[in-house]
Write a protein that binds this DNA or RNA. Structure first.
Lengths: 205, 205
DNA sequence: AGATTGAACGATTTGTTGAACGTTCAGAAA
DNA sequence: TTTCTGAACGTTCAACAAATCGTTCAATCT
């Protein structure tokens, strides 16, 4: 079974090279198989289909991204505001640089988003877990309290959609996007602190 | 010249019927011309091209929409929070119902957005003027003060993008969208009031 | 037996050709 | 002259054919 995983990795590596060089649509299963010195049919012992290879590549990148996000926010002594800022700026810069470095990735993302609509939601949900952790920690430090953290995380994701898929709805440069994200986050986080203050006042009364 | 405007209106009406019945791509200039009892060539004395007819239709609808927005916020004695709520809810419901009632409109909007990238920006800028008016009025009433109203309006637009083009990036139902918009607006507006309080405290110190 | 192949299948894409489209403009009509 | 027409222009679209692709599976190899 360890053998099987090695072959899976080999296939993923070969496909990743082809996909990013020539694009998802332009690479054939036969080519990927040849790169791995096997027949096209044999690929299907390791993956249900072509799209699942792309999904495996995306999932690996997503795990890396989550790891990076978790690393950023785990520095002790950081305020909730700073953690949220770091989180969303990493998000923006990560996808921006990824798509700038290799536009082919956009094709892969589009295909997956179109054929597997739940997949994007799954990624968003994973990132929301980290947001909830940030809210938990901020509450523990007495910075602000949110009565429904999962919902608040969803609101933050809604409000920062434009920065999550930056080149999908605007051709703004990174500095302009960062300036906008900064402004939006400032309002949102001020909102959090304000709601907490209001809530505390309500409790006190 | 009044005659010319009448003909323009006639063309716009004929095109509007065709576009919403059969779609933008599927209606030909010859058909619109025939509906107006004129030759295809004659259309070009009134509009530079097919796309400009679509733009004229869109502009008329946009003007109607702006009028509706201005009417909503001009009720005296309303708080800034309520005005902002009414503004963005009207925005959401307006586009949602429009696209639900007639999906062909989405085709027209896509074509214009694709071929005339500045046009969307122009519409956003018009709506921003109304937002700035809301901020002005709120400042006059001493509710909150924003040091750069144009920028703040842009931030509100950024954060509510998802609700401006609802069926473009999610297939959520209107109630779910309204619940989300409510949550986002609550955070944003709390943020405004908080920034104002902070600003006042800074001035007082 | 299990692992692998590669020809075969239906679906999708590509290439091509002819029709249809948006647009123009020389000339007819007013 | 000014207003309007409709044939003509290059481009885009639609439909059909051929080729190619993702996927399957009976046959082959280990």
């Amino acid at each position: 079974m360890a053998e099987k995983d090695t072959v899976r990795e080999q296939i993923i590596e070969a496909a990743k090279k082809r996909f990013s060089h020539f694009g998802y649509a332009k690479t054939t299963m036969a080519e990927v198989a040849a790169d791995c010195s096997m027949s096209p049919g044999n690929l299907y012992r390791f993956f249900p289909g072509k799209l699942d290879i792309a999904e495996a590549i995306a999932s690996a990148a997503h795990e890396e991204h989550l790891k990076e996000l978790r690393k950023l926010i785990q520095a002790p002594g950081k305020s909730g505001r700073d953690r949220l800022r770091d989180f969303f700026f990493e998000e923006l810069r990560h996808t921006y640089h990824m798509l700038e470095k290799n536009p082919r990735i956009h094709e892969m993302a589009s295909v997956i988003a179109c054929e597997r609509p739940q997949y994007s939601n799954w990624m968003l949900a994973n990132e929301r877990k980290i947001l909830v952790e940030i809210f938990d920690e901020a509450e523990r430090r007495g910075e602000f309290r949110t009565h429904d953290k999962e919902f608040t995380a969803e609101m933050f994701q809604s409000a920062t959609m434009k920065f999550h898929y930056p080149q999908l709805w605007s051709k703004l440069t990174l500095p302009k996007l960062e300036r906008e994200l900064d402004g939006v986050l400032k309002l949102l986080v001020d909102g959090l602190y304000a709601q907490a203050a209001h809530h505390n006042a309500g409790q006190a009364a």
